[in-house]
Computed example of a mutant assay.
Amino acid sequence: MTYVVTDNCIACKYTDCVEVCPVDCFYEGENTLVIHPDECIDCGVCEPECPADAIRPDTDADMEKWVEFNRKYAEIWPVIVTKKDPMPGHEDKDGEEGKLEKYFSEAPGEGG
């Protein structure tokens, strides 16, 4: 099992999860995070830290696409280990449907 970030993170990008990760397997895009599924040690400490409920185990239904999504972007985005402020307007977008199609950016974040 591994954990992955889903579209609930897009346009919110809470980073509470990155500080508790013991193996630094989070990577930062311009407006979301991903977890490298091959680096995650399945400890699960990040899942309850996410205010947007965006971190899910790959054993949940229909997670295959999110495993591949996380792997793809973890390979090209910088690692993030330090908590940052969420995105401006995150309150309005938290829980919104269709965020992948509406807001997702492939651009890397700053990392750090």
Rank of each mutant, 00 (worst) to 15 (best):
M1H: 10
T2I: 05
V4D: 03
T6H: 05
D7M: 08
D7Y: 08
N8V: 01
C9V: 06
C9I: 04
I10C: 07
I10R: 09
I10K: 06
C12I: 08
Y14N: 14
D16W: 04
V18H: 11
V20H: 02
C21Q: 07
P22G: 08
Y27T: 00
G29P: 07
T32I: 00
L33G: 08
C40V: 10
I41V: 15
D42F: 12
D42M: 02
G44S: 01
V45Q: 02
C46N: 12
C46M: 11
P48H: 07
P48A: 06
E49Q: 15
P51R: 03
A52G: 08
A52K: 12
A52L: 11
A52T: 14
D53C: 05
D53M: 12
D53E: 14
R56A: 14
T59Y: 07
K65I: 10
K65S: 12
V67I: 13
V67T: 15
E68C: 00
E68Y: 00
E68R: 08
E68P: 03
F69C: 03
E75P: 03
W77V: 05
P78D: 07
I80G: 04
E91S: 13
K93R: 15
G95D: 01
G95T: 05
G95H: 04
G95L: 02
E96H: 07
G98A: 02
G98W: 06
L100P: 04
K102I: 09
Y103D: 03
E106G: 15
P108G: 02
P108M: 01
G111M: 06
G112D: 12
